[in-house]
Amino acid sequence: MRQGGRWDDLGERLGVGAVVAAIGLACVWVGGVVFSLLTIVIAGVIVWELVRMLDRTAPAGVIAIGSAAALAVAEFLPPGYALPLLLAPVFAGFSQLAQRRATFAIFTLLILIAGFGLNVLRVDFGFLWMMWLALVVIVTDVFGYFAGRFIGGPKFWPRVSPKKTWAGTVAGWVGAAFVGGGFAWYTDATTQLVPVSIAISMASQMGDIAESAVKRRVGVKDSSSLLPGHGGLFDRFDGMLGAAVFLLLTEQLIGFPPGSAG
């Protein structure tokens, strides 16, 4: 019975995760308006989930629609014009919450920057490197899930994320290193892509931990119940949020893809 309890969510988790990943990668491959619409919808839903967690009295739907609308307009403007629009929903929503305003402001800003930035990355680097980013995040999650349950051991931060272990955390880095090595071999990027992939994996895990901290603070298990086995979109995309923001902040510093002529 105890063993079964550890794996009773596996089938549902893998099935829903596979569908979400397939839809996401298909939209990344198509690019253009299709990918923009995906990021707009996901960002809007995540903001809705965030507001509902932080303050049940706040108009979550209105704030989410306003955030999605601002992102939709921003994605079709030059970056300089887009930046104020990405900040506007943060100020508007800030005035509507009665509590936890700082948490709302920080996370909403990161969500909208990630949504906007993913489109920039798709245009600048193309499908191949967006697939690399997605695979690093997915492999980090999958390796961490299985290693955490097979190996167990010391918890990473039990007070915030009771199920996350050091074994799962390190396994995520190992999986990311394999993805980076594979892409370095397949492309003209150098082996620096391996440690870059590990860093992206770490940023993905920090996104997961940050969301877990918010949920622990407000006393909820999941951001919503939209995705069986996963919770909400915030629960599913928290790692991508951390990874995307980190890549946006560092890709100019490392000359991404490292060593690549393209």
Rank of each mutant, 00 (worst) to 15 (best):
R2F: 13
E49W: 04
D238S: 02
V19W: 06
G232N: 06
R122N: 06
A184T: 03
V33E: 11
R149H: 12
P84M: 07
A68D: 00
F35W: 05
V137K: 09
L233W: 04
S36A: 15
G231R: 01
G207T: 02
F146D: 05
A210R: 00
S223N: 03
A243M: 06
F94M: 14
V41M: 00
A22D: 10
W29C: 11
L86N: 02
Y186C: 12
I63C: 00
V45C: 04
G80N: 11
I23P: 02
L87I: 14
L227R: 05
V160D: 01
G182W: 04
D222Y: 10
V139S: 04
I23M: 14
L233F: 15
P79H: 05
M202W: 13
L97D: 04
A261M: 12
W185S: 12
P89L: 08
F94G: 14
A18T: 13
D55K: 10
S201Y: 10
V137E: 08
M1W: 14
R122Y: 11
Q96A: 15
A26E: 02
L37H: 00
I113K: 02
G231Y: 03
A213N: 04
I138K: 10
G182Y: 04
G262H: 15
W157M: 13
G15V: 07
G4N: 14
F127W: 11
V194D: 06
G168I: 11
A98Q: 13
F150C: 09
G66R: 03
V136C: 08
A102L: 14
M206V: 15
V139H: 07
I209F: 09
K155A: 11
I42M: 09
K164N: 07
G24V: 02
V73D: 03
I106S: 00
I254Q: 05
V142S: 10
E49H: 04
A261S: 14
G172N: 03
L193M: 08
S225R: 13
L112Q: 05
T108S: 12
T190W: 13
G255F: 10
K163W: 04
D8W: 13
S36H: 09
M202V: 15
A244C: 06
R159M: 06
W132S: 02
L83T: 09
I200D: 08
L118S: 12
A74P: 00
A243P: 03
A147M: 00
G32R: 02
S197K: 09
G17H: 07
A26P: 10
V194F: 01
F107R: 05
F234I: 05
A102W: 11
R100C: 09
G32A: 10
V30Y: 07
G32H: 00
G181M: 13
G232A: 09
V220I: 05
P158E: 14
V123R: 14
V33R: 12
R149N: 07
A210M: 12
